[in-house]
Protein backbone atom coordinates (compact mmCIF):
# COMPACT_ATOMS: atom_id res chain seq x y z
CA UNK A 1 0.00 0.00 0.00
CA UNK A 2 3.03 2.26 0.11
CA UNK A 3 2.51 3.47 -3.44
CA UNK A 4 -1.20 4.13 -2.89
CA UNK A 5 -0.61 6.42 0.06
CA UNK A 6 2.53 8.12 -1.22
CA UNK A 7 2.07 11.88 -1.29
CA UNK A 8 3.80 13.80 -4.06
CA UNK A 9 4.07 17.55 -4.28
CA UNK A 10 2.88 19.24 -7.48
CA UNK A 11 6.51 19.87 -8.32
CA UNK A 12 7.35 16.17 -7.88
CA UNK A 13 4.51 15.26 -10.20
CA UNK A 14 5.46 17.87 -12.77
CA UNK A 15 9.09 16.74 -12.79
CA UNK A 16 8.01 13.09 -12.93
CA UNK A 17 5.78 13.67 -15.94
CA UNK A 18 8.44 15.78 -17.60
CA UNK A 19 10.86 12.87 -17.23
CA UNK A 20 8.28 10.16 -17.96
CA UNK A 21 8.72 8.48 -14.57
CA UNK A 22 6.54 5.37 -14.53
CA UNK A 23 5.73 5.56 -10.82
CA UNK A 24 4.40 9.12 -11.18
CA UNK A 25 2.33 8.24 -14.25
CA UNK A 26 0.81 5.30 -12.36
CA UNK A 27 0.15 7.49 -9.30
CA UNK A 28 -1.70 10.13 -11.34
CA UNK A 29 -3.60 7.43 -13.20
CA UNK A 30 -4.83 5.85 -9.96
CA UNK A 31 -5.58 9.19 -8.35
CA UNK A 32 -7.78 10.24 -11.26
CA UNK A 33 -9.39 6.92 -12.16
CA UNK A 34 -12.42 7.41 -9.93
CA UNK A 35 -13.25 11.01 -10.93
CA UNK A 36 -12.77 10.23 -14.62
CA UNK A 37 -14.93 7.13 -14.26
CA UNK A 38 -17.69 9.34 -12.88
CA UNK A 39 -17.12 11.77 -15.72
CA UNK A 40 -17.40 9.06 -18.38
CA UNK A 41 -20.67 7.77 -16.91
CA UNK A 42 -22.17 11.18 -17.66
CA UNK A 43 -21.67 10.48 -21.36
CA UNK A 44 -23.42 7.16 -21.99
CA UNK A 45 -23.29 7.73 -25.74
CA UNK A 46 -19.51 7.64 -26.06
CA UNK A 47 -17.74 4.49 -27.09
CA UNK A 48 -14.54 5.08 -25.12
CA UNK A 49 -13.89 3.32 -21.81
CA UNK A 50 -12.70 5.21 -18.73
CA UNK A 51 -9.23 3.73 -19.23
CA UNK A 52 -9.09 4.99 -22.82
CA UNK A 53 -10.14 8.51 -21.82
CA UNK A 54 -7.65 8.63 -18.97
CA UNK A 55 -4.76 7.24 -21.03
CA UNK A 56 -5.50 9.74 -23.78
CA UNK A 57 -5.80 12.51 -21.18
CA UNK A 58 -2.49 11.56 -19.59
CA UNK A 59 -0.81 11.50 -22.99
CA UNK A 60 -2.06 15.00 -23.76
CA UNK A 61 -1.12 16.21 -20.29
CA UNK A 62 2.47 15.02 -20.71
CA UNK A 63 2.75 16.46 -24.22
CA UNK A 64 1.47 19.83 -23.01
CA UNK A 65 3.86 19.88 -20.06
CA UNK A 66 6.82 19.08 -22.30
CA UNK A 67 5.79 21.81 -24.75
CA UNK A 68 5.54 24.32 -21.90
CA UNK A 69 1.79 24.73 -22.38
CA UNK A 70 0.98 24.00 -18.76
CA UNK A 71 1.44 27.21 -16.82
CA UNK A 72 0.57 25.86 -13.38
CA UNK A 73 -2.41 28.15 -12.93
CA UNK A 74 -4.48 25.11 -12.04
CA UNK A 75 -3.47 21.92 -10.26
CA UNK A 76 -2.32 19.02 -12.44
CA UNK A 77 -5.37 16.97 -11.45
CA UNK A 78 -7.75 19.80 -12.39
CA UNK A 79 -5.96 20.29 -15.67
CA UNK A 80 -6.06 16.56 -16.44
CA UNK A 81 -9.75 16.42 -15.57
CA UNK A 82 -10.44 19.34 -17.89
CA UNK A 83 -8.57 17.59 -20.72
CA UNK A 84 -10.52 14.36 -20.10
CA UNK A 85 -13.76 16.32 -20.08
CA UNK A 86 -12.91 17.81 -23.47
CA UNK A 87 -12.18 14.33 -24.81
CA UNK A 88 -15.58 13.13 -23.57
CA UNK A 89 -17.37 16.15 -25.00
CA UNK A 90 -15.72 15.64 -28.35
CA UNK A 91 -16.55 11.94 -28.36
CA UNK A 92 -20.08 12.73 -27.34
CA UNK A 93 -20.41 15.20 -30.16
CA UNK A 94 -18.93 12.67 -32.52
CA UNK A 95 -21.44 10.01 -31.59
CA UNK A 96 -24.17 12.58 -32.27
CA UNK A 97 -25.78 12.13 -28.92
CA UNK A 98 -24.86 15.54 -27.59
CA UNK A 99 -28.35 16.93 -27.09
CA UNK A 100 -28.37 16.56 -23.33
CA UNK A 101 -24.95 18.18 -22.95
CA UNK A 102 -25.20 20.77 -25.70
CA UNK A 103 -25.41 23.63 -23.24
CA UNK A 104 -22.38 22.37 -21.34
CA UNK A 105 -20.41 21.98 -24.54
CA UNK A 106 -21.36 25.46 -25.66
CA UNK A 107 -20.14 26.77 -22.32
CA UNK A 108 -16.78 25.03 -22.82
CA UNK A 109 -16.40 26.46 -26.31
CA UNK A 110 -17.20 29.92 -25.04
CA UNK A 111 -15.09 29.97 -21.91
CA UNK A 112 -12.41 27.36 -22.63
CA UNK A 113 -10.30 26.29 -19.70
CA UNK A 114 -11.16 28.60 -16.81
CA UNK A 115 -7.65 28.23 -15.40
CA UNK A 116 -5.98 29.56 -18.50
CA UNK A 117 -3.80 26.50 -19.18
CA UNK A 118 -3.63 25.91 -22.88
CA UNK A 119 -4.32 22.62 -24.61
CA UNK A 120 -4.14 21.75 -28.29
CA UNK A 121 -7.49 22.02 -29.99
CA UNK A 122 -9.47 18.91 -30.76
CA UNK A 123 -8.87 19.73 -34.42
CA UNK A 124 -5.12 19.42 -33.82
CA UNK A 125 -5.56 16.04 -32.15
CA UNK A 126 -7.78 14.90 -34.99
CA UNK A 127 -5.03 15.77 -37.43
CA UNK A 128 -2.47 13.95 -35.27
CA UNK A 129 -4.71 10.87 -35.28
CA UNK A 130 -5.11 11.09 -39.05
CA UNK A 131 -1.35 11.27 -39.54
CA UNK A 132 -0.78 8.35 -37.14
CA UNK A 133 -3.36 6.29 -38.98
CA UNK A 134 -1.75 7.16 -42.30
CA UNK A 135 1.69 6.20 -40.93
CA UNK A 136 0.31 2.83 -39.86
CA UNK A 137 -0.99 2.19 -43.35
CA UNK A 138 2.13 3.29 -45.20
CA UNK A 139 5.01 1.06 -46.20
CA UNK A 140 8.04 1.33 -43.94
CA UNK A 141 10.07 2.77 -46.86
CA UNK A 142 7.67 5.70 -47.03
CA UNK A 143 7.69 6.32 -43.29
CA UNK A 144 11.50 6.19 -43.37
CA UNK A 145 11.93 8.74 -46.14
CA UNK A 146 9.29 11.13 -44.76
CA UNK A 147 10.91 10.85 -41.34
CA UNK A 148 14.26 11.71 -42.88
CA UNK A 149 12.97 14.61 -44.96
CA UNK A 150 10.72 16.06 -42.22
CA UNK A 151 13.36 15.98 -39.51
CA UNK A 152 13.01 19.73 -39.12
CA UNK A 153 16.24 21.52 -38.35
CA UNK A 154 16.49 23.74 -35.32
CA UNK A 155 18.00 26.62 -37.24
CA UNK A 156 17.06 27.51 -40.79
CA UNK A 157 19.68 26.94 -43.46
CA UNK A 158 21.16 29.90 -45.22
CA UNK A 159 19.01 30.70 -48.17
CA UNK A 160 20.20 29.58 -51.54
CA UNK A 161 21.81 32.10 -53.89
CA UNK A 162 19.11 31.65 -56.46
CA UNK A 163 16.49 33.01 -54.11
CA UNK A 164 16.17 36.63 -55.03
CA UNK A 165 15.40 39.14 -52.32
CA UNK A 166 12.78 40.86 -54.43
CA UNK A 167 10.32 38.02 -54.09
CA UNK A 168 9.15 37.97 -50.49
CA UNK A 169 6.52 35.29 -50.79
CA UNK A 170 8.84 32.96 -52.56
CA UNK A 171 11.51 33.50 -49.95
CA UNK A 172 9.10 32.85 -47.09
CA UNK A 173 7.97 29.58 -48.61
CA UNK A 174 11.49 28.55 -49.46
CA UNK A 175 12.70 29.44 -46.00
CA UNK A 176 10.27 26.99 -44.50
CA UNK A 177 11.28 24.34 -46.98
CA UNK A 178 14.96 25.01 -46.42
CA UNK A 179 14.44 23.89 -42.82
CA UNK A 180 13.74 20.39 -44.13
CA UNK A 181 16.57 17.93 -44.65
CA UNK A 182 17.97 18.39 -48.16
CA UNK A 183 17.45 15.45 -50.52
CA UNK A 184 21.21 15.00 -50.81
CA UNK A 185 21.40 14.26 -47.09
CA UNK A 186 18.28 12.10 -47.17
CA UNK A 187 19.79 10.14 -50.06
CA UNK A 188 23.08 9.66 -48.23
CA UNK A 189 21.24 8.50 -45.11
CA UNK A 190 19.24 5.94 -47.07
CA UNK A 191 22.04 4.89 -49.42
CA UNK A 192 20.19 5.87 -52.60
CA UNK A 193 20.66 8.59 -55.20
CA UNK A 194 19.28 12.10 -54.61
CA UNK A 195 16.98 11.78 -57.63
CA UNK A 196 15.68 8.49 -56.33
CA UNK A 197 15.11 10.04 -52.90
CA UNK A 198 13.24 12.96 -54.43
CA UNK A 199 10.99 10.69 -56.50
CA UNK A 200 10.31 8.34 -53.64
CA UNK A 201 9.53 11.21 -51.28
CA UNK A 202 7.07 12.77 -53.72
CA UNK A 203 5.29 9.46 -54.22
CA UNK A 204 5.07 8.88 -50.46
CA UNK A 205 4.06 12.46 -49.75
CA UNK A 206 1.19 12.17 -52.20
CA UNK A 207 0.03 9.00 -50.46
CA UNK A 208 0.23 10.75 -47.12
CA UNK A 209 -1.75 13.78 -48.26
CA UNK A 210 -4.37 11.57 -49.90
CA UNK A 211 -4.84 9.71 -46.62
CA UNK A 212 -4.79 12.78 -44.40
CA UNK A 213 -7.07 14.88 -46.59
CA UNK A 214 -8.94 12.53 -48.93
CA UNK A 215 -11.72 15.09 -49.49
CA UNK A 216 -9.33 17.19 -51.58
CA UNK A 217 -9.14 14.46 -54.22
CA UNK A 218 -11.56 13.28 -56.83
CA UNK A 219 -13.10 9.99 -55.72
CA UNK A 220 -14.27 8.56 -59.04
Amino acid sequence: MRVLTHAYTEEDLLNGLQAGTGEVIRYIYRKNLSPVKQLVTRFPGIILETEDVLQEGLTRLILNIRKGKFSGKSSLNTYLYSICRNICLKENQRSQQANRFRDEEKATEEFGNPFGDADETEKDYEMIQRVIKAKEKMESQCVEIIDARFAIRSSPFALRDKQSTDCRQRTANSEQHSRLTPFEEVAEHLGISADNARQRFKRCLERLIRMVRPEAFQVN
Binding site: G20, R26, Y29, T59, V131, F150, I152, L180, V212
Partner: peptide, 27 residues
Amino acid sequence: KLRKELPDHWKRAGQYQQVRQEVRGSL
Protein backbone atom coordinates in the same frame (compact mmCIF):
# COMPACT_ATOMS: atom_id res chain seq x y z
CA LYS B 1 -1.59 25.25 -45.99
CA LEU B 2 -1.81 21.58 -45.09
CA ARG B 3 1.30 20.82 -47.14
CA LYS B 4 3.21 23.59 -45.35
CA GLU B 5 2.09 22.35 -41.96
CA LEU B 6 2.57 18.67 -42.71
CA PRO B 7 6.15 18.41 -41.37
CA ASP B 8 4.92 19.83 -38.07
CA HIS B 9 1.93 17.45 -37.98
CA TRP B 10 4.24 14.55 -38.77
CA LYS B 11 6.63 15.53 -35.99
CA ARG B 12 3.83 15.96 -33.46
CA ALA B 13 2.31 12.63 -34.44
CA GLY B 14 5.68 11.03 -33.67
CA GLN B 15 5.87 12.79 -30.30
CA TYR B 16 2.31 11.74 -29.50
CA GLN B 17 3.07 8.10 -30.32
CA GLN B 18 6.17 8.21 -28.15
CA VAL B 19 4.35 9.66 -25.13
CA ARG B 20 1.41 7.32 -25.62
CA GLN B 21 3.88 4.44 -25.56
CA GLU B 22 5.41 5.84 -22.33
CA VAL B 23 1.98 5.97 -20.72
CA ARG B 24 1.03 2.50 -21.85
CA GLY B 25 4.40 1.15 -20.78
CA SER B 26 4.11 2.75 -17.34
CA LEU B 27 0.64 1.32 -16.88
